[in-house]
Write a protein that binds this DNA or RNA. Structure first.
Lengths: 329, 329
DNA sequence: GCTTGATGAGAAATCGATTTCTGGAGGCTA
DNA sequence: TAGCCTCCAGAAATCGATTTCTCATCAAGC
């Protein structure tokens, strides 16, 4: 079913059908009615490849995230969608699953389709390469990318680390471990950096053996915590630098029968629902999830509307939520 | 940067560039090298609108789900992606957010782009209309749709309800409530139906006032449980028919200081991580998440490869996971 | 030495929509 | 009534890739 079929059915030219359906130019009301009727009767769906080819742009945004199963990202995506729907865009979500190769494939796809915009949380600060999609407006969120100078919405992750350290120190913890991600993920890396810096300042530098890197899934966090336990020397508190890692750390402590809070304190990042459902509740550094998504969406919409111009780099502030898992030492 | 630019740079015709990059036909090795070099030098990304227009099909699948924030769906999507990547397809995820209008928009988009395939969990059994995308191979998952006869992967949800009922009866519960979703969502509706049927058979029919419908988010489950509490007459157990509803019910019970298991039993659906992290752990009817996604992906790949043929309707079996939240009555 | 066939690569048609170009009909002014 | 606009709608060009058509070249076979 093409525009020519509709044109034939309505007894007009394809040009007229296009004009009616897009509301551009002037068409006699009577003809317009005939066209609309024909389009409805034939269940005509315009081929967006033809349209995008001619128009040279689509009305779809892609959001590429590194882990669709992480509630932080789905929360951000939901907020982006709200803005997009509001401005008449559609959003498709792509999951790179922390793999640079899959990310590149999605970037290629976005560029090849000449999408209207792109929001991306990269898989790797050093290896990710956004040049493939350099032609379409992009907003980088959550994680920094090597030499990207465009719009971005980030959180002050060094501060996040400092907040966690401050809190643990205040609560009297001193023998502190950290479970964090690969060194090419800027978020977890910055949180570790801020955390370390604060502990060093306080004269309680973190022991090298107590810094554990893991892949950014619950399994990674769990394995890392078990590795710490196997070391024999038990820390009195643990900082996990993202949501899934926190979850994994919690599960390992629980499985080993260690009293969270009393024996070993635990503080995490990202306020997923479960943190308030367990006992004791888990202290976390919270990121402004909805705000990140909203701002990313608005930045993208503005960039698309206003064209090139000075890049905006927004940095938001995290918040400490102190709870039972870091009390009772 | 178009194929003609590359052709000019390599000193050949566009046809030759196309042949080289797609590996079809025969091209002299020397020319081929020149083309490949020119394509690399110019960072040429083929316009997929032009390509899809001519080829009449793309290599992208869309997965439309009703709630990206529900771990059940993201789990299924991750499994579909594994199959897709394996077969050389890309997957984009679309979130209808339980809204038929947004779902239609995504269906229109999928049809307009002539995507290679579609996997969908509909927003409404009665209102969702897949005819818009009738031209592309589709697999329906999770929820039934009014008069859809194509491929599908479902779970025996009446059995899921019966398993929950059986277990509660066995544990000695008799005054039982149910928190479920809108009546046009077949999954929660079937679970309720199976649950009711089993309780009636056992001579302990569920009281009408103890059947609460809620929107399918944690807030909905929480509100529904509070409504039951406000009724004054406390049930001795509650069945929540999906993941977020279970979460909400748990939160409400906990907030009200009701001892889960001892005072009020709780059984849910979907084995999200938190169910094993809380105390007591929550009993659930588990769906084979990865299996659903894998089968949906394979069904779609086969359909695309083999063309029309008899539809396959796969029904999987849920499993009961009995835990502390339904003990101790 | 001439015919036949295979091979390689450019020219041109094609996909389906949008947009520019073009021309006819009708209204207005001088 | 001639001349000029304006308005409307069809014809045709265009977007960028793929694929069919066409033709030139060269080798093999008789």
């Amino acid at each position: 079913m093409t525009i020519s079929d509709v044109a034939r059915a309505a007894g007009v030219s394809p040009a007229t059908v296009s004009r009616v359906l897009n509301g551009v130019g002037t068409v006699a009301p009577e003809l317009a009615d005939r066209v609309r009727k024909a389009a409805a009767d034939t269940r005509y769906v315009p081929n967006s490849n033809g349209r995008a080819l001619r128009r040279r742009v689509s009305d779809v945004w892609a959001v590429i995230v590194s882990d669709v199963q992480n509630p932080f990202f789905t929360g951000v995506v939901a907020a982006i969608e709200r803005v997009a729907v509001d401005r008449g865009f559609s959003v498709v979500l792509c999951n790179s699953d922390e793999q640079v190769a899959r990310e590149s494939e999605y970037l290629r796809l976005a560029a090849a389709q000449h999408l209207a915009g792109l929001v991306i949380a990269v898989a790797s600060e050093v290896e990710s390469d956004l040049r493939t999609a350099a032609d379409i407006p992009a907003v980088v969120i959550d994680r920094r990318v090597h030499d990207h100078l465009g719009d971005s919405v980030m959180v002050d992750n060094r501060l996040a680390g400092r907040l966690a350290a401050d809190h643990l120190l205040e609560q009297g913890f001193r023998r502190i471990a950290c479970i964090t991600g690969p060194s090419d993920v800027s978020t977890t890396e910055d949180r570790l950096a801020g955390f370390r810096a604060r502990l060093s300042e306080a004269g309680a530098p973190i022991a090298r053996k107590w810094i554990r890197r893991a892949n950014l899934r619950a399994e990674g966090g769990e394995a890392a915590l078990r590795a710490i336990l196997r070391g024999g020397d038990l820390p009195d508190a643990v900082f996990a630098t993202n949501g899934p890692l926190t979850e994994g750390a919690y599960q390992a402590l629980q499985a080993e029968g260690i009293a969270i809070g009393a024996e070993v304190g635990l503080i995490g990042v990202d306020d997923d629902h479960w943190t308030r459902m367990v006992a004791p509740q888990v202290s976390v550094v919270q990121q402004p999830v909805a705000e990140i998504g909203r701002l990313a969406g608005e930045l993208l919409a503005n960039r698309a509307a206003r064209g090139p111009g000075p890049a905006q780099q927004i940095v938001l502030t995290p918040t400490l939520l102190a709870r039972g898992s870091t009390r009772g030492h």
